[in-house]
Design a protein around this nucleic acid. Structure first.
Lengths: 343, 343
DNA sequence: TTGTAGGCGTTATCAG
DNA sequence: CTGATAACGCCTACAA
């Protein structure tokens, strides 16, 4: 073993008294090898602490063992949950995860991604919402020969390229719950214009109202942008209505927290005076007062599946093709919902 | 240009009518090149959309262009802030960031990291607190020939290998603020045992009390573990004391939110009945009620510096060596602190 | 079952 | 200033 550098396949071959190719066969678990040789080589590998060089391996195989996560930081917990899911999928493999936040707003976004993809030659990328909703981005990946899987609030692509949650249905369920509790004047805080998730959640909300034959007056819809401040603002607009809504569904937890804030500022008690439901079940949901009833979607499992899907066909024990494409969310009932006060 | 693959240096060389080496010189900005040749080659590069293959490059240079982030998810916002800082540092370089969460509790942690490092042959790694406080981990990196920079709440290593905030001083300042407001019975919610940051913050707290000649009774110290629930619990223990503390410093925001929760459950108004200060200035600080006075440390800048330090000597315009090693935190005053009620 | 020759795309050496 | 030639560490084809 040379000092200063890691041992190479040559070192192993020499010490084991075999050719490089034989060592290569051992590494790649080739079936045509005598047990004796294999054992001998494996022993040397163990003694040397040899690990194949991924760069050389990648070069020879004309492949890359990096998978990318492209996101536009929708919210840090979500990003980290996704990272965790991906890492569960690639654990024990030779793949590594490289992260790449981008700026959705920037006109240079596509060029940035192109640059990144061309430079790093990733095996493939995972696209997080909301940037995953960008069809141009997906086409760009495709044209660059980079595999991709998109995560989303609804099916964004064919099953090989997407993994989705059922936001609309989940919100319908959440809203039904409000209705069952006796609420009739229910406000909606939407997500930002143009976001698929925002559309889905709104559609789910309206669906439940329609089922129950409840009309949704204009004044009970307030636009938000998924950020806390917009939740406060939307909450204020909604609570200014006369009569006031008895319940509000906010399209994510941060905005729901903002609604709580607005209610608090008016000395409205939640849930006595106002019921609130959020979406995402991020950490904040459990930490605000009162703990927020919300919709949880299985972000980590989704990400794991997305990663396995991306890797389909490349892993030893391969279930990638079988990975589900739809994941169900569920309502988490905490303390921010109650029956409305009798009028 | 061959179809199906990216153009290579050979394609460029052939089309430009020069040798591979010359192209290589252009790529690497060698000074000894005629402007004419350079221009011709650059034109072809542009036409072809050629980008050097990082794997081949890494192989030839016996280097790797990946830097790793090893963390034990202390809190998702912090991790994302760090990722952002690192990315600012490596933007426009050929480096990429690979993330690697580890499990601090697991006995296999060091082996996992060793495995990861041996396998990926990273250029270097950034170590986040609290895992960065583990000296064995640093030694492991060193022994594997992997550069590292540790981030921490206090200087953890020499200036080439560490970047720190001044937690102790920042907490002293925060506590002084409480004292200036007239508080004398101030409770402390500590961080988990054995964490450097927890020690620093506690020390800073005690320092301010000592300065003011205030004694800290046993009953006014409650142990937490940086998680929300432990904050609720610690808050309850503290608020059970007679006389009750008029202010509480919690060693991070999550626990401070927990204290708010506990106060809320007892119908104590913050800040009228109880003042609260947190630490970190994570998102939650601004989203709870009332908005939390807290200590903000410049996590993103720290991470950027840490990354530049790691890269010191490898970048074109190199300021890595000059990167600061100490970063100052500051008190963010919001609404969770007021003067105590007259008795 | 194993080895040899050659190539993956890049850079270093050293001669022109 | 430029270009052969030989690495870098691994893999595929083809032989043996």
């Amino acid at each position: 073993m040379k000092t200063g550098g890691n041992p190479t396949i040559n070192d192993v071959a020499r010490l084991a008294g075999v050719s490089k190719k034989t060592v290569s066969r051992v590494i790649n678990r080739s079936p045509l090898l005598s047990d004796e040789t294999r054992l001998r080589v494996e022993t040397v590998i163990g003694e040397l602490g040899y690990t194949p060089n991924p760069q050389a391996r990648g070069l020879a195989l004309r492949r890359n063992f990096l998978i990318g996560l492209i996101h536009d930081n929708p919210n840090s917990q979500m990003v980290l949950g996704v990272q965790q899911g991906i890492l569960e999928a690639i654990r024990e493999t030779e793949f590594a995860l490289v992260v790449r936040p981008v700026d959705r707003g920037s006109p240079a976004m596509l060029d940035d991604v192109r640059h990144f993809l061309e430079r790093q030659r990733l095996f493939g990328v995972l696209l997080l919402p909301p940037i995953s909703e960008n069809d141009e981005l997906a086409r760009l990946c495709e044209s660059l020969g980079c595999r991709y899987v998109r995560m989303g609030s609804a099916k964004l692509d064919d099953d090989h390229h997407s993994v989705a949650s059922n936001d609309a249905e989940a919100v319908t369920e959440a809203t039904r719950y409000l209705i069952e509790q006796g609420h009739r004047r229910i406000g909606l805080v939407t997500g930002p214009h143009g976001f698929r998730s925002a559309m889905e959640r709104r559609a789910g909300f309206e669906e439940a109202l329609a089922e129950a034959g409840i009309k949704l007056p204009r004044g009970l819809v307030a636009n938000g942008d998924y950020r806390f401040d917009s939740g406060v603002e939307a909450g204020n607009r909604l609570l200014d209505q006369v009569p006031m809504p008895t319940a509000i569904f906010a399209s994510n937890d941060e905005m729901a927290a903002g609604v709580l804030h607005a209610a608090r500022q008016r000395n409205l008690a939640v849930p006595q005076d106002l019921s609130v439901i959020g979406f995402d079940d991020t950490e904040i949901a459990g930490h605000v007062w009162p703990p927020l009833t919300t919709v949880r979607w299985p972000i980590t499992s989704m990400a794991r599946s997305a990663a396995l899907k991306l890797l389909a066909g490349t892993l030893d024990d391969d279930n990638g093709i079988e990975e589900p494409s739809l994941f169900l969310s569920k309502l988490i009932r905490r303390s921010s919902v109650a029956r409305p006060q009798p009028e």
